[in-house]
Design a protein around this nucleic acid. Structure first.
Lengths: 159, 159
DNA sequence: CGGGACATGTTATAGTATAACAATGCTCCT
DNA sequence: AGGAGCATTGTTATACTATAACATGTCCCG
């Protein structure tokens, strides 16, 4: 899995590659990465943390880019719909996708110590949940996989 | 997995066994299954559907058992804390546990056709998410596993 | 240049959840 | 009995999350 976020890295490249990957995908699929959408993606990419819609809205507002909730929610809808960001259901918050363009059944590791969120990509077809569902004739269309706990750094700090 | 909920069954026994299992656990652990708590559990057990806190509150209110949100939320906190009910994060709703007293890392199959929710119990230690977490030194304390899709009945009806 | 599709702006409101404090009832202890 | 301590419930108020509905703008296509 990609545990980036839990380890030191050149974070500028996260932002740059994230935005350009999204731009490429949009160009390829005829989607519009408008100013607001791009900016919301950048805001999410700035940290490996989950942000609430109203946190994002506050930034947009301070930059004169729209001050009402629908502005933020629409941008987030666009980003999540096309796989550029994900909603963390457990937190009612959002994170940038760490593998834009990649295949998607993301899983998340949420550190309750430092609030970092790491994204993992598991192969959907081999999971036990998939097998359990098949066994009862259930067809999965969307899955939420979120684990809360402590990252290595926080666990060692707590010990 | 226990796909009860997706198949015909004697539902009265779900309620009875649910309540008595909770009563036994409370007796064994010195917990108080008060009127409000028992009633909320019964309400949840009445259907294999997820209910919002305000849906539950409405029932309580109609029965003269408390009319303000904290009454419902406190009962739900108690029930979820002790494994008698679970929150479905994806829906911001609650369901009764279908295996009270059992070990817990529940997973849920949520049918978007009929709104039934089935609870599965997977062995936490063997999962891929657990392995991915171990690989990066992450310690899982709580996991949310929720799949949305169509149960067999709804899928056949849609075809 | 008119019309359709998409994006944004704006107002209002719906839906979910908790903080904070008051009041009650209970047990246990002296 | 009196009183401390605890858990539970009652109540008010408010915070946080999300969307409906309608108006405006913009661009491209026909």
């Amino acid at each position: 899995m990609s545990a980036i976020g839990f380890h030191p890295h050149n974070h500028d490249s996260c932002i740059q590659t994230g935005v350009s990957a999204a731009a490429e995908t949009c160009a390829a699929e005829g989607l519009q990465l408008t100013d607001v959408r791009r900016r919301v993606l950048e805001i999410l990419l700035e940290k490996h943390h989950a942000l609430g819609a109203y946190d994002i809205l506050e930034v947009l507002r301070s930059e004169g880019m729209g001050s009402q909730p629908p502005v933020a929610y629409r941008a987030l809808d666009f980003l999540t719909k096309h796989g550029f960001a994900h909603k963390i259901e457990r937190l009612n918050k959002f994170v940038a996708c760490s593998d834009i363009g990649g295949d998607h059944t993301p899983a998340f590791l949420i550190c309750t110590g430092c609030d970092l969120v790491a994204e993992a990509h598991l192969d959907a077809s081999t999971g036990r949940l998939t097998k359990a569902a098949e066994a009862v004739g259930f067809t999965i269309e969307r899955a939420v996989l979120e684990a809360e706990g402590l990252c290595q750094t926080c666990r060692e700090a707590a010990a």
